[in-house]
């Protein structure tokens, strides 16, 4: 096989590896822009993955599977919204609980389907599948929405100061609910991509930490949609390049490569922990703070 073909294979594999991260991270980006921190991405991805998979087995339709995965992610996010927004529980604790719930629930739902073969969604253009192109469109749409629309401006206002937004007459909780549902739907789609396109296979815990990488990516991207793309393909690329280097017989310690995405994340977290840098990075000021509507 020629060098050019190898390069193309690496490139396509990188884009594929990055796509679930793009879906999950762009959803969480909108959630965080609205001032909500939902740490349940991993759990929502898993529930999306298993639901999509079970629906494909039942109906044979990949489209139905993708829709179901999206809906399942949104359903779990609705639970988060109920507990953390309506009932005003701590967001961090609720998000962590959501991950644990998602891991357990997906394992339970998928119990009889572990390893069942299905035919996945095939590539349509340049060796890439339709969902990859959808992920690009979604990032463009979110970027346009946040930067160019009035609704996007309101959402960012809610994320920066819910009290001010409230005083101006915006319905903070409604907007945050919608943002959380969007984030859940995207995470569900990310899971569906893993179980229906990427592998295509259901096994317990198959997200293997990608939900956490997506969370880190949002920070890494400094809450900017275009940078999510860069970050996702960078993370995907490091993994894929490492595998190809090994296959080519180069001595790359696999443990080091497995560690890299998290190392990058820690570096970014250290940077944003400094208040001055954080402001420059444009972090949502009300991120993770509970909104108590004045009565």
């Amino acid at each position: 096989m020629g060098d050019l073909e190898t390069l193309a294979a690496i490139l396509i594999a990188t884009l594929r590896a990055g796509t679930p991260l793009v879906f999950a991270a762009i959803g969480e980006l909108v959630v965080e822009r609205a001032g909500v921190l939902n740490l349940g991405v991993e759990g929502m991805m898993l529930v999306g993955a298993v639901t999509g998979f079970v629906v494909v087995i039942a109906t044979g339709s990949p489209t139905a599977g993708i829709v179901a995965a999206t809906a399942a992610g949104a359903a779990l996010a609705a639970l988060f919204a109920l507990v953390a927004l309506t009932l005003r529980a701590n967001q961090v604790a609720t998000g962590l609980a959501l991950t644990i719930l998602g891991i357990g629930a997906s394992a339970f739902i998928g119990l009889d389907h572990v390893g069942t073969p299905i035919s996945g969604i095939a590539p349509v253009l340049l060796g890439l599948d339709p969902l990859f192109y959808l992920s690009l469109a979604l990032v463009a749409a979110v970027a346009w929405f946040l930067a160019r629309t009035r609704a996007g401006l309101v959402l960012r206002a809610v994320g920066d100061s819910h009290d001010v937004a409230h005083a101006m007459g915006y319905r903070v909780l409604v907007i945050r609910h919608l943002a959380v549902l969007f984030g859940g739907a995207s995470a569900g789609l990310a899971g569906g991509y893993l179980s229906l396109v990427y592998t295509p296979l259901w096994v317990e815990g198959m997200t293997a930490g990608r939900g956490w990488i997506a969370l880190a990516l949002v920070v890494f991207a400094a809450w900017r949609p275009a940078r999510v793309l860069v970050g996702a393909y960078l993370f995907g690329g490091v993994t894929i390049a490492g595998l190809h280097a090994q296959a080519a017989g180069l001595a790359v310690p696999p443990q080091l490569l497995a560690m890299l995405p998290y190392l990058a994340t820690i570096a970014v977290l250290v940077v944003i922990a400094r208040a001055r840098w954080r402001a420059r990075l444009d972090a949502p000021a009300a991120l993770g703070r509970t909104f108590d509507p004045p009565t």
Binding site: G205, A208, T239, L243, P254
Partner: peptide, 27 residues
């Protein structure tokens, strides 16, 4: 024999990518 280590017993996504990388190397 060309070997790829995935650093995981169980990551179907990564196992698939490793398989693809080996195919690209001519396996």
């Amino acid at each position: 024999v060309r070997v790829i280590w995935t650093s995981s017993w169980y990551d179907p996504g990564k196992e698939r990518e490793a398989a693809e990388a080996l195919i690209a190397q001519g396996a």
